[in-house]
Nucleic acid binder design. Sequence first.
DNA 1: CCCAAATACCTTGACAGTCTATGCCTTCGC
DNA 2: GCGAAGGCATAGACTGTCAAGGTATTTGGG
Lengths: 108, 108
Amino acid sequence: MAEKDRLHGTLDALVLKTLSWGPRHGYAIARWIEETTGSDIEVEEGSLYPSLYRMERKGWIEAEWGMSELNRRVKLYKLTTEGRKHLRQETSEWARFSSAVSRILLVN
Amino acid sequence: MAEKDRLHGTLDALVLKTLSWGPRHGYAIARWIEETTGSDIEVEEGSLYPSLYRMERKGWIEAEWGMSELNRRVKLYKLTTEGRKHLRQETSEWARFSSAVSRILLVN
DNA sequence: CCCAAATACCTTGACAGTCTATGCCTTCGC
DNA sequence: GCGAAGGCATAGACTGTCAAGGTATTTGGG
């Protein structure tokens, strides 16, 4: 429980950012985030899929069924214009927030 | 709701760090964090007091009734050894986490 | 040919921390 | 005497994460 829940509220932004490089399916999004962060961030599927539905409902991403390179049925998500806009906002909020926290936590 | 809940899981560490400068009462902790971050972080009392009780229960802080400079009855909190240890851990976890998120979010 | 592992999606339930809102009491300035 | 500010406290709704389960398909090794 020590490490837990730290993701709270941040996952959506991470997923959006991942999709900003191009369409990806859920499983791949999770793996990509984990690899990119050297497993500093682990994306649980029980968090990921709800996040995807949430954002699809809000119109930030769109889904389409397709096939992966490994010949498996996958649901490909891609960023909408709305989503891109929201990502920009989330990013700047994160910058402000994280710098504020670091200002307190990491000084002295 | 856009800005909301971003604090999630971070408040405890911020409070502990605030107390690492010396004992303070709840209200003062909140004001100090807000001032220090230029209101980038707002500490709601409905979040603060539960956080204080939580940490008192866990033995990270200790409370004692006293008087403020403004001559008001206040509950002064101070960091315990255990709390100081926990703060170190929280701090390093924050550093890892925030750098991981920034690595994804703030690049390119 | 079978079986395990990896890929991929999905759902349920518990949990925990934040927020909004409210209440109460005291001190100080006017 | 009254309002604003200082100060503590709690209830309830909300929401997102996580653990743990489930299904199905494909691939590769023995």
